[in-house]
């Protein structure tokens, strides 16, 4: 089942602005290798799940996958053939805000070549340009 919050303070949110770069969550923190996003936008819960499934399927119980983003922003959408107005529409799905530098997925416990192949498969499911990165040393 796709990710979404358990409790929220408000059912609907304004769209907001998309700008800036990732100042947090922009390095490999848990695993050894990661998939870093180079673009800016919204990543839906379905897309996150598709990426996770792609990596899990490729790794076949080896290693550990960390999902570093969480869809906490509701996306509302008006039904088809509806006239404009009558207030804000109902939430359709949930998205995660992603900025250039955000690490989307991490993998631990597998060799570099295997992690790279798995994360390339994940990158194909992402709506952004992504790149493979390794853990940064002190």
């Amino acid at each position: 089942m796709a990710l979404m919050p358990k409790r929220v303070k408000f059912r609907k949110q304004q769209r907001g602005k998309m700008r800036g770069v990732a100042t947090r969550g922009n390095y490999v923190a848990f695993g050894d290798y990661g998939l870093q996003c180079l673009d800016l936008g919204w990543l839906s819960a379905k897309q996150i799940e598709a990426g996770r499934v792609a990596a899990t399927h490729f790794l076949q119980r080896e290693g550990k996958i960390y999902v570093r983003v969480f869809p906490d922003k509701p996306y509302t959408k008006k039904p088809l053939e509806t006239r404009m107005g009558k207030g804000k529409a109902e939430p359709e799905y949930w998205v995660a805000r992603v900025k250039p530098g955000t690490v989307l997925f991490e993998i631990a416990g597998v060799p570099s070549s295997v992690a790279k192949q798995a994360l390339i498969r994940v990158a194909h499911k992402m709506p952004f340009k992504c790149r493979f990165i390794e853990r940064r040393h002190a």
Partner: peptide, 10 residues
């Protein structure tokens, strides 16, 4: 009943 919406606080 599949949960489609989160609980709204308050």
């Amino acid at each position: 009943a599949a949960v489609t919406e989160p609980e709204v606080i308050g």
